[in-house]
Amino acid sequence: MIQTLTHSALDIRWFTESTWFHSSDATVVRAGVLLLEAAFRSTQPATIPCDPLILSRLSGLSANVWAENGATLLQGFEQVEGGAWRHTKMAELFDAVNERFGAQIKELVASSALASLAVEEFPLVGEVKPAGRSKGKRALPKDYQFNEGLVAKAEEAGFITDEHKAWLLQKFKDFATSSGRLYSNWDATARNFFTSSITQRDFLSNFGYWPRDSKTRLMPALGAPSAPVRSGPQSFESAALNGSKSSVDRVLAKRFGAQNDVQDADVKPAAGTSAAFTQGGFGFGFARNRGAAPGAAA
């Protein structure tokens, strides 16, 4: 059973059908609104006291002004046992709500009281669904690991070492737990994750090469095919791996001068010219005709 009307709505007709609502005096209109609000919020629903002094204060009027307009402002109210004034239409609404929903409201109030004392034993509203489930979808299990089939797919995608796989699993778990993601098939999601361009770029940033190049770099003894040579400038490393002396010469010449100034690392300098050579980076030697070093033979 409800005790107040604060969860219901004020009916606009309670205002517009009252004589005071059409008064040319704004203070009278305001007083009528305040009286309805007082009845609406009263602990005795739809009821206001009978004391004229209290009524004048509730309406925001002086005692003299209340005496002049009180009869008009109490239109729609009726005096009940004990002398209080009760708004008839508002009271009808209150009685109808209690008659139709009073039992349910009383039960809900009682359940709320019990729930406040034993939250675990008395759920307030219905059964709480397990967290992370919605229409067959679920959160990633905390103990999730790649099964044998997923490990094979990961290796096909270029994640071949234990370090690669550990990194991949952690990245996948981070992806799964971010923003509370829910999926019905996490294994299928993992397969898509392996070949995602975002995953590939993250791998490149972490390991320094693309997953597709892992076998060429790390498993040459198994006869893995070499990575295709791409157009554009070559690096020292790619030129050396491809065994191309001409490529090495071109790279060195571009970095340090004309091709005739460049010598390969395994070519020993001529006698008496060792001071003119300096050891270059990446295992390559190069020399320039910059004049004899101090103390060199003429």
Rank of each mutant, 00 (worst) to 15 (best):
L5V: 12
D11K: 12
I12L: 14
I12H: 14
S24M: 04
D25H: 10
D25C: 03
A26W: 09
V28S: 04
G32W: 03
S42Q: 04
T43G: 08
T47K: 06
P49S: 08
S56K: 05
A63Y: 08
A63V: 10
E68Y: 07
L73F: 06
Q75S: 12
F77A: 01
R86A: 00
R86G: 00
H87P: 01
K89C: 00
A91I: 00
F94R: 00
N98Q: 11
E99N: 09
G102H: 10
A110Y: 04
A118G: 01
E120W: 03
S134N: 13
R138H: 15
P141V: 01
P141G: 02
D143T: 08
K153S: 07
K153N: 06
A157H: 03
I160F: 02
I160W: 01
L168S: 06
K171Q: 15
A176P: 13
T177L: 12
S178K: 15
S184V: 09
N185A: 13
D187L: 03
A188Q: 13
A190G: 07
N192M: 13
S196Y: 03
T199I: 04
D202Q: 14
D202I: 01
L204K: 15
S205A: 13
Y209K: 09
S214L: 04
T216I: 08
M219I: 05
A221P: 00
G223C: 11
A224K: 10
S231V: 10
G232K: 04
P233Y: 05
Q234V: 07
S235E: 06
S235G: 12
S238A: 10
A239P: 09
S244F: 02
K245D: 11
K245H: 12
D249I: 15
L252I: 11
L252N: 04
F256K: 09
G257D: 06
Q259L: 11
D261Q: 12
K268D: 07
P269C: 12
T278M: 02
F282I: 01
F284I: 05
F284N: 09
R288K: 15
G291S: 10
G295V: 01
